[in-house]
Amino acid sequence: MAPRANRAGAGLGGDPHQASVKEHHLASVKPHPASVKQHHASAKQHRFCVPPGQLHDGTVVFSDEQWHQIRAVLRLRPGDMVRAFDGATPVDHVVQLVGPKEGTVVGTRPQPPEPKTRLVVYPALLQRDKFEPVLQKLTEIGAAAIVPVLTARCLVREPADDQRQARWRAILREAAEQCGRGVLPALLPTQTFPRALASAEGSRFVAYEREPRRQLRDVLRSAPGTVSVFVGPEGGYTPEEADCAEHAGAHLITLGPRVLRTETASPLLAALVLYELGDLSSGHSDDA
């Protein structure tokens, strides 16, 4: 007996003629609202960040890498729903897949609100296996911007090249896709510690293991605004760097009695700032 034809659309396996007919049908017929709602639960699990130029006039064009994930990893087919967002505006577009690398926008959903506090994190530049998780966690927590910093005790002595920068931006996108966030944090060029201190805006806090008593809540303002936080490398800041921070008007603070790894300290300090300012309260999007 001959095998039954695969009914999936073009690009997902199956008969090319059947696929082209189905793609034309899906592209020309707007799905019933009940169908969109039925697929909503699965749609919110699969989010893709696409540049604004790939989301135009109700059509989304996915990259080759994204389409490979949709087709080969997630095993989705024409008619299935995903979400797309552009990384700059707080809206998720509900997208119905219609064919190779394309989808049709059939609705929108609001995203959880961004923190009212503009949190800028200045983590010391670390080795790859330690720095990349820091970027991921800071995106999930809600940092508005991330500025890598070269300090006296950094083991990495050179700023990232273009290839590494591209990888870092991909990590930010993937973290935002996973956590439901719609606005990507800005990834700014690497700076030296003195330059970073001088250019940092708002209230500035430096985690320093030799600070005996002053905690974040002792010096953090309650009003939302810009907050800049600094975390040193594996060996911590030097006494000279701590003096430099105080002379620049920054607050040296302790993160508690235990010695934390630097890749732990950056996400922890970011979360503490947003928690103390009430920016980690529940802000669910409307999934009705």
Rank of each mutant, 00 (worst) to 15 (best):
A5W: 09
N6T: 13
G9I: 07
G9S: 04
G14F: 12
Q18C: 08
A19K: 05
S20Y: 11
S20T: 12
E23F: 08
H24T: 14
H32F: 08
A34D: 13
A34G: 11
Q38T: 12
Q38R: 13
H39S: 11
H40M: 15
A41N: 14
K44S: 03
H46P: 00
C49F: 09
P51H: 06
G53H: 13
L55S: 06
H56F: 01
D57S: 15
S63I: 01
D64L: 14
W67T: 10
I70V: 07
I70K: 03
V73N: 02
L74T: 10
R77Q: 11
P78H: 09
G79Q: 07
D80R: 04
R83C: 11
V91C: 14
H93N: 06
V95I: 04
P100L: 10
K101E: 03
E102M: 12
E102R: 13
V105I: 05
Q111F: 05
P115Q: 05
V121T: 06
V121N: 04
Q127I: 09
R128C: 03
K130R: 13
K130Q: 08
L135K: 08
Q136P: 00
K137R: 07
E140N: 07
I141Y: 11
A145L: 01
R153I: 00
R157M: 02
E158M: 01
P159Y: 05
D161N: 00
Q165P: 12
Q165G: 15
A170F: 12
A176H: 10
C179E: 03
G180P: 02
L184T: 07
L187D: 06
L187K: 05
T190N: 00
F193E: 05
P194S: 00
A198Q: 08
S199Y: 10
A207F: 11
Y208Q: 03
R210V: 14
E211N: 05
D218H: 14
S222W: 12
A223H: 15
A223K: 14
V227Y: 10
V229I: 15
G235L: 05
T238P: 07
E240C: 11
H247G: 13
H247K: 15
H251F: 14
I253M: 10
T264F: 10
A265N: 00
A265L: 02
P267H: 04
L269N: 03
Y275E: 12
H284T: 09
S285W: 14
D287L: 12
